[in-house]
C-alpha cells in the first residue's frame, strides 16, 4: 500500500465513524421503556396501537376542536363520548406524567412542550418557590433604566 501513513488512519477513521452506533452502545444494556399503565382502567380513548402511534395527532385535533370550534366531546371509534382534555381527561387515568408520558418521550428523545402550559397531575402544588419580596427586588434590579 502507498501512503499507508495517511490511508490507514483514514480507513480507521471511516470505520469508526460509520460504526459509531455499535461501539458507543457496546457493553451497555439494551433499554426498554416500561410506561406505567393505569390499573383500574383497561381501555384508552382508542386502541392501544392507535394511541401509541397517533396520540399526538389526536391531541392536536382535540386542541383545535376545543379552542377554536368550541367542541368538547370526542366520539371514539366505539361510539363512546369523551371529554376532550389532556389535563382533565387523559391525566385522570394516567395519573403520572413522569411514569407514563416521560418514559417513552425520554426514550426516543421527543420533547413535546404541552407541559409548558398544561399542568401534569404531580405538579398540583405549583411552582411559586420564590418569595414575593425577592421577586420584586429581582424584577426591579433587572430594569435599572425604568421606574414608575
Amino acid at each position: 500500500m502507498h501512503d499507508a501513513g495517511k490511508v490507514i488512519p483514514g480507513i480507521i477513521a471511516f470505520v469508526l465513524f460509520v460504526t459509531v452506533p455499535f461501539w458507543t452502545n457496546f457493553g451497555k444494556a439494551a433499554p426498554k421503556p416500561q410506561p406505567e399503565l393505569p390499573k383500574e382502567y383497561k381501555k384508552c380513548v382508542e386502541s392501544k396501537e392507535f394511541m401509541r402511534r397517533e396520540h399526538m395527532k389526536l391531541l392536536r385535533k382535540w386542541r383545535f376542536d376545543v379552542v377554536r370550534n368550541n367542541m368538547r366531546v370526542y366520539i371514539n371509534s366505539e361510539g363512546r363520548l369523551i371529554n376532550m382534555s389532556l389535563q382533565n381527561e387523559c391525566m385522570r387515568c394516567h395519573t403520572s406524567k413522569k411514569k407514563f408520558c416521560d418514559v417513552c418521550h425520554d426514550y426516543v428523545a421527543a420533547h413535546p412542550y404541552c407541559w409548558n402550559c398544561h399542568i401534569p397531575p404531580e405538579e398540583k402544588k405549583g411552582w411559586a418557590t420564590k418569595e414575593v419580596k425577592s421577586l420584586t427586588e429581582e424584577a426591579s434590579s433587572k430594569q435599572p433604566a425604568s421606574h414608575h
Binding site: 426498554k32 421503556p33 396501537e49 401509541r52 402511534r53 397517533e54 417513552c104 426514550y107 426516543v108 421527543a110
Partner: peptide, 9 residues
C-alpha cells in the same frame, strides 16, 4: 405514523 418507541426498541 408508526410507533416510534417500537422503532427505537
Amino acid at each position: 405514523k408508526v410507533d416510534v418507541t417500537q422503532v427505537k426498541e
